[in-house]
């Protein structure tokens, strides 16, 4: 990780839904090549923060700067086109398409074309390559199954595969690990480390703290839409406010 190269800079981001302050004045910095963890109890605004950064929701206030350019309020496809891609907490595959054809869609995006991810006629092969990299057995039936017939583990991988098809700079993974077994997570961890080694920067929103803390370089904790603490995994874990947010008042010992 490269502390003097801020890739993404979020300042004073806020969003209210009706009367509910879902994200409140959140600022953070993402450095090139790091894995930044975001934690917080249910409903603390993690997904909303992801939506704000990736353009799926327009912020009420605040700025999101990517390499110095303010992208707050841009439409989601433009932001994805810059290389900031995300996975969805509740997986969103194309259920009526086969797994490998799920990747044909992102492979046809302007960004994938620009990045040389396969020309017309090669895209099937590129899709299968990506799927193999991400853990779909190439010579089995799995890549040819309809997404509706795939179990959760594969769907989560498919989410990640969709991101990879865009040759991303930043992957924002929203609860990639939830719903997976310990062994499935164990097989994903090296993959993420490999991708990080390949120069991809990660923001990982997670409830699985143990796995996250072994991966993340830095962690931010949210509660009721505000940032309550930021630091190395150890520091965050030791922070009384974080313990209180997770365990409730009185649970801090």
């Amino acid at each position: 990780m490269n502390m003097d190269k801020p890739l993404l800079k979020v300042e004073g981001l806020s969003k209210t839904f009706g009367g509910l302050q879902a994200v409140q004045d959140v600022s953070m910095v993402l450095y090139q090549g790091e894995i930044l963890g975001i934690i917080g109890p249910n409903g603390s605004g993690k997904t909303t923060l992801v939506n704000l950064i990736t353009g799926f929701i327009k912020p009420d206030k605040g700025s999101v700067k990517f390499r110095g350019r303010d992208i707050a309020g841009w439409p989601p496809h433009k932001i994805a086109d810059l290389g900031i891609v995300r996975t969805f907490q509740n997986m969103r595959p194309y259920y009526s398409l086969e797994a490998y054809r799920n990747l044909i869609v992102p492979l046809n995006s302007p960004r994938a074309k620009r990045m040389g991810m396969g020309r017309w006629g090669e895209r099937d092969t590129v899709a299968l390559d990506i799927l193999e990299e991400i853990g779909f057995e190439r010579d089995s039936f799995v890549p040819y199954k309809k997404a509706s017939a795939l179990p959760t583990g594969y769907l989560k991988r498919l989410e990640l595969a969709r991101c990879l098809a865009l040759k991303p700079e930043v992957i924002i993974a929203d609860e990639l690990f939830s719903g997976l077994s310990a062994s499935e997570i164990a097989s994903l961890v090296p993959l993420i480390e490999k991708l990080q080694g390949g120069g991809i920067t990660f923001i990982m929103v997670e409830h699985r703290l143990r796995e996250l803390f072994s991966l993340a370089n830095r962690v931010i904790a949210l509660d009721f839409g505000t940032k309550i603490c930021e630091g190395s995994p150890k520091e965050v874990m030791a922070n009384p406010r974080v313990r209180q947010a997770y365990l409730g008042p009185g649970g801090s010992d």
Partner: peptide, 24 residues
């Protein structure tokens, strides 16, 4: 074809298409 697959993607899940950097 590729075009048709994108369109079917739009039907199944337009959010994922947006997240793929494609203008729905």
């Amino acid at each position: 074809e590729d075009l048709g697959l994108i369109l079917r993607g739009v039907k199944d899940n337009d959010q994922a298409v947006k997240a793929s950097g494609i203008s729905v």
